[in-house]
Computed example of a mutant assay.
Amino acid sequence: MDVVTFGETMVLFTPQTAGPLRFVNQFAKTIAGAESNVAIALARLGHQVSWVSRLGNDEFGLYIRNFIRGEGVDTSRVVFDDEHPTAVFFKEQQVGQETKVYYYRKGSAASFLTPDDLDEQHLAQAKFLHVTGITSALSDSCLETTEHAVRLARKHDVTVVFDPNIRLKLWPKERARQVLNRIAAQVDVVMPGMEEGALLTGAAAPEDISQRLLAQGAKAVVIKLGERGAFYSTAGGLQEYVDGFPVKQVVDPIGAGDGFAAGFLSGLIRGWSYREAVRLGNRVGAFAVTVSGDVEGYPYWSQIAPDKQDEIYR
């Protein structure tokens, strides 16, 4: 197994027309979840990846499991919960305004994840564990599960890549800062966006953010800079800005960060340098923004392999 990840995935309803939801009659149904986004993107890039979660034992839960499994992701460790539902959320689109999102996830099956839902031997066989701050914010048991997963990974020499993925709708800023810094100090690679890095460290420049996170114990820090690409720094003293890939038209930025994470992980799995892995992350992230939806834009390896792109990663 190349990567194990875990977290909540929800059913997403996107309106077919703009305007207040009370006037919308038709929706498109799909799924969305940071960790399953990464899992699907990795599977398309040719890797063996497992996604662990709890889903309601309901039609939405079956839909999510079948969707993710259909993308080639191992879902054998997904638990179906008879007592708690699968979460859903809705987008609201109005012309000239930012898209609003309405979540219905309180008391969801995924928020009842516990350390017992993790299979130690399954995790021990992975090369990488991918963790996000979203899961930690869902509930106390989810936080316990996240910290337990990191401990198991360290016990078995599994490399831990941590994306803070801060969602302030889920918890207060100070609580997020405290908990996520505690997790960041226990992992190998921390991968925040600029605003997230600033919130965690109080620093404003990528170089300063990186140094503060490295000082906590990480071996490497990768800071996502959107269309500008990314900056990475290692405990060994390497650091570099890596340019992003130009996109003629951004259709939907949702999922770009998760695509970057998958591309970066793919590069590490292949034994590439940090620079090469970050560049691949930029490439996958650029693909993600060209279509609407979380996972719809993620490329297959045949589309972006170096021999198809004149060695653009080197």
Rank of each mutant, 00 (worst) to 15 (best):
Q26G: 00
K106H: 11
I31C: 05
S108N: 01
I304P: 07
G255V: 12
A277M: 02
M1H: 14
V189Y: 10
Q309E: 14
G197N: 05
K169W: 10
F80L: 15
R54A: 03
D157Q: 15
R54P: 01
D157S: 15
L180S: 02
L62V: 01
A205K: 14
V88S: 05
A261D: 13
Y232M: 11
Y300V: 00
E227Y: 03
P164F: 02
L143S: 06
F287V: 00
M191Y: 11
T9P: 10
E71W: 05
I223W: 06
D163K: 02
E227K: 15
V38D: 07
G259M: 11
K169V: 12
K173R: 13
K308E: 13
G217D: 09
D243P: 12
L170W: 01
F13S: 03
L170G: 09
F13P: 02
P206S: 05
K173V: 12
T114I: 03
K100V: 00
G56W: 08
R154L: 07
E35V: 05
S233E: 13
W171I: 02
Y232P: 09
R22Q: 14
F90C: 03
L21T: 11
A305C: 07
V278Q: 11
F27I: 08
A261P: 03
V52W: 07
K224D: 12
Y300T: 09
V160D: 02
F162I: 01
M10Q: 03
V11Y: 04
I68R: 01
A32T: 07
T9N: 03
I31L: 07
I68P: 05
Q97D: 11
A124C: 07
R228E: 15
E276F: 05
S136K: 06
V278F: 04
K127N: 14
Q303W: 08
V24Y: 08
W301Q: 01
A43W: 09
V38I: 07
A235G: 01
Q16N: 14
V11P: 04
S292V: 08
Y103P: 09
V95G: 00
A218G: 10
C142Q: 02
V24H: 03
V179D: 05
T75K: 00
A43R: 12
P20R: 11
A39Y: 09
F60V: 04
V49Q: 06
R54K: 11
T14H: 06
L129P: 00
V79K: 12
L268R: 14
A137N: 08
Q178H: 10
L138G: 05
P164M: 03
V179N: 02
G237D: 08
L214G: 11
V49A: 05
Q94S: 14
V11I: 05
I223F: 08
T114H: 09
F67M: 00
S108H: 04
A149F: 04
F245W: 14
P253E: 04
S136L: 12
F23E: 15
S136H: 01
K308T: 09
E196W: 10
M1I: 05
A41E: 13
R279V: 01
T145Q: 02
G46E: 06
Q239L: 04
Y274K: 00
G197K: 03
G193S: 03
A286C: 09
I134H: 05
D2H: 13
V289N: 04
A288W: 11
R283M: 15
A41H: 12
K155Y: 00
K173H: 12
D81K: 06
L21C: 10
I209K: 09
Q309R: 14
A18H: 13
Y103D: 09
W301T: 11
M1C: 13
A220Y: 10
L118I: 14
V295N: 13
